[in-house]
Design a binder for these strands. Structure first.
Lengths: 245, 245
DNA sequence: GCAAAAGTGTTGTCCTTACACCCATGC
DNA sequence: GCATGGGTGTAAGGACAACACTTTTGC
């Protein structure tokens, strides 16, 4: 066994074994809650279940579970997504920790909010436990726990991120028309944008691939379908410098 | 005592009491680590101590502590800052959670990284336990735990944030010369900026207050001192819409 | 008077905005 | 043929990038 000196050169008492130290720390149940956004009928939606806690009867709740021993945080988020929805291969990102001591009626529980974005058509719901379903973000209110606050945080995060990163495409089919893309931006940002300028903007980025296909089954002139060029984006991803506030 | 129904309308078994449920959750020690940035001699610096764990002898470590029972997360971060440095009234923001199962030699410990920004001149160090000191960010390497990774994350967060929010002023004296401001931006972003354009930019924002004072004790022509107009900034804070990636 | 940094303006380019008309398709 | 959205161009204004010289102060 390795022998450690008792004191470091700075006179601080060194701790040879960290295990007993960590054992003195208070422990907290840690959960992951997933805010899963989808886009359907030109509305931003969130995947939610009905809470199974009696005091929240009838209220909506995020998909969440406790963190297992030795489980990576991101892995836990992916696991929850898969267990609750059967979905896999989904974009996921850690957003914020919520830890108010009284946020859970069963005692203190700290939760890490993860945000994911997916295309509703590509990911059919196969599990419907606890009335798992898509709910319009606009009509949400009065959720279980502090989940409304968590959703609001993630929505705000989404609004910011979608302007700086090509996240919107995760919410659309692989092939999409420009109008769909614009609807998505308008729905998320809550603004209306000039169609010509919007199209010019994306044209000038030169990151959309013309699939040579057209929309089907629309009751008007069909638009061209595009794919986002993730490869080119990743290759040219420029570090942007600009002060703006 | 309130009587809960056994089943909700959706057929899900309702849980009347959340406490036993939460008691079945695994518990994890939760810590807060503070990445405290300062700016001195045109260099971005971080406030660090020498680790008191023997296996990390001589290595640098962030200021951290475990989260107490019933303690709010933000409050814990402020407490740590105060206990370790005597400093108060400091900007602080949650950045990211780090939870690799093996990140701590004493067993699993999940940590929440907080970032703070302060002016070194305004906050004299009064406590020097464990060689608490300012270290140049540029020369950091080989820290205790995963603290280098945490510092890198916070630095990246700072680089992004400083371009969109007026955070830089937290690192400067209340009254500062434009050259100091520019040095700060150049140091943090790692670029050099055109002096005239930089000044024009800030002039056009109209958020700097001319204090009618000049720099003192500089060995060259003294510059005007400015204050940042936080009030005006907060009032006019506009929601920025613009797609850019 | 020399060194060092403060302070200042113009021009070209690019990006953004505002705005209106014809076209293709389904019904 | 009519309704619906697809697709396009231009002009004006604003922001940004590039660029050099004079001024003030300390020494």
């Amino acid at each position: 066994m390795k022998k450690f000196p008792e004191k470091a050169s700075n006179g601080v008492q060194l701790i040879a074994d960290a295990v007993p130290l960590v054992n003195t720390y208070p422990k907290v149940p840690l959960t992951i809650d997933c805010v899963i956004f989808g886009f359907e009928e030109n509305k931003l939606k969130v995947l939610l279940i009905k809470s199974d806690l009696a005091i929240y009867e009838g209220k909506l709740s995020l998909l969440g579970d406790f963190l297992r021993d030795n489980e990576e945080l991101d892995a836990a988020a992916y696991r929850i997504l898969k267990e609750r929805t059967g979905m896999t291969d989904v974009f996921l990102e850690q957003v914020k920790v919520f830890g108010k001591p009284d946020r859970h009626p069963g005692g203190r529980v700290v939760t890490i909010a993860y945000c994911s974005l997916l295309n509703i058509q590509h990911h059919e719901l196969k599990i419907h436990d606890n009335e798992l379903n898509w709910y319009s973000l606009a009509h949400l209110k009065d959720m279980a726990f502090d989940h409304k606050e968590i959703v609001d945080s993630c929505y705000h995060w989404l609004q910011e991120s979608i302007q700086e990163h090509p996240l919107g495409f995760k919410l659309l089919p692989h092939k999409f028309a420009l109008r769909e893309l614009q609807n998505l931006y308008e729905a998320i940002l809550g603004v209306s944008l000039d169609r010509r300028n919007f199209r010019k903007k994306f044209a000038s980025m030169d990151l959309l691939i013309d699939t040579q296909e057209m929309e089907q089954d629309v009751s008007h002139r069909p638009g061209k379908l595009y794919k986002f060029n993730f490869e080119k984006y990743e290759k040219n991803k420029r570090k942007w410098i600009g002060i703006d506030f």
